[in-house]
Amino acid sequence: MSIRPPAVTVVGSINLDLIATAKRLPTAGETIGGAVLSEQPGGKGANQAAAAARLGGSARMIGAVGDDAHGQRMLDALAVAGVDTADVAVLPEPTGTALIVVDRDGENQVVVCPGANSHLWLDGVAFDPEETVLCQLEVGLTVVLEAARRHTGYFVLNAAPAMDLPAELLERCDLVIVNESEYALIPALASAKLVAVTYGRDGSAMFEHGRKAAEAPSAAVTVANTVGAGDAFCAALVLALRQGLEYARALAVANAVGGDAVGDHSSQPDLARLRYYLERTSVAEAAR
Rank of each mutant, 00 (worst) to 15 (best):
P5F: 02
A22F: 05
D264Q: 12
L134Y: 04
R150S: 10
A254K: 12
S218H: 07
I3R: 12
P161S: 11
L134K: 12
A252H: 10
N158K: 08
V143Y: 09
C173M: 02
V227P: 12
V178D: 05
V227Y: 06
S2F: 05
G45D: 06
G259I: 01
R24C: 13
K23D: 15
A205F: 11
A190G: 09
E215I: 00
G66A: 06
S13A: 13
L120N: 06
V262Y: 11
Q40D: 00
L18R: 14
P92D: 00
L185E: 13
T27N: 13
F233K: 07
D202C: 14
E182F: 08
S204E: 05
V133K: 08
L175H: 08
A160I: 07
A116I: 07
E39Q: 15
G140F: 02
P26S: 11
T132D: 10
M74N: 14
T281S: 09
D174F: 01
A53I: 06
E93I: 02
E215M: 14
S13W: 03
I100Y: 03
G29N: 14
A261S: 11
R24I: 02
V125I: 15
R280F: 02
V221S: 14
S181I: 09
T27I: 04
C135K: 11
E182W: 07
S266T: 08
D260S: 09
G228W: 06
N47I: 02
T27M: 14
A214M: 03
E146F: 02
Y277I: 01
A28S: 15
L251T: 09
S266I: 02
R60W: 00
C135M: 12
N255C: 15
L185C: 05
A98G: 14
N158D: 13
I19R: 05
I186Y: 10
S13P: 09
A248L: 05
G34N: 01
G42Q: 04
A232G: 06
Q268A: 12
E131F: 01
V257P: 08
G259H: 01
G106T: 06
A224M: 07
V223G: 02
V221Q: 14
E30T: 07
A220F: 00
A190F: 00
R242I: 00
V197I: 14
G124Q: 06
D164N: 12
P129Q: 10
A79H: 05
G29Y: 11
S282D: 15
A20C: 13
L99M: 07
G153E: 01
S58K: 13
A86I: 00
F207M: 13
R172K: 15
A248R: 12
S204T: 08
A216Y: 06
V11N: 07
L37H: 03
L18A: 11
V112A: 05
D67I: 03
P5H: 02
V227F: 03
N47V: 02
G45K: 07
V102P: 02
L239H: 01
V8N: 06
D260L: 10
C113F: 11
W121P: 01
S191R: 15
G140T: 06
A116T: 04
R201S: 10
A167S: 13
A7R: 15
G115A: 14
S204H: 05
T198I: 08
L134R: 13
L175P: 08
I177Q: 09
N255S: 14
G33R: 12
R54D: 02
G63W: 06
V238W: 04
V221A: 15
K23N: 09
L165S: 05
N108F: 10
G203S: 11
V238R: 06
Q72V: 00
